[in-house]
């Protein structure tokens, strides 16, 4: 388990009380990140994941700049000091 920085942009900031940068102490992969965020900011999981537990179409998650959809999705592993960005997908339009 590693400590990673998660940055939140767009409407999801409403759930974090405007906080844009969150350090998560223990996250082995993106799914862990989502669980950890949900614990701190209830409601986050349903904004990020759909009913099947996959990443919502309206959200993009990046690890060190790369969209996790092109990596291993929620199973994308994280190492110490990785940077995770969660953005509304429409930002890339």
């Amino acid at each position: 388990m590693n400590s990673v920085v998660v940055r939140i942009s767009g409407a999801l900031r409403k759930l974090t009380g405007g906080k844009t940068e969150i350090e998560l102490a223990a996250a082995g992969n993106i799914a862990d990140c989502v669980v950890n965020l949900e614990e701190q900011f209830p409601g986050m999981r349903e904004k990020i994941c759909d009913e099947e537990g996959e990443i919502q179409g309206a959200v993009n998650i990046y690890v060190n700049g790369d969209n996790v959809r092109s990596l291993q999705g929620l199973a994308t592993t994280l190492k110490a000091e990785d940077e995770v960005d969660i953005l509304p997908a429409f930002a890339a339009a």
Partner: peptide, 25 residues
């Protein structure tokens, strides 16, 4: 700038095609 989010234009083109997320929205 801290946000690090790279998007290929091919992804954007796909989403503006019929059935694509951006065009349909």
């Amino acid at each position: 700038v801290k946000i690090k989010a790279w998007t290929y234009d091919r992804e954007v083109v796909e989403k503006w095609m019929p059935g694509g997320q951006y065009l349909e929205r």
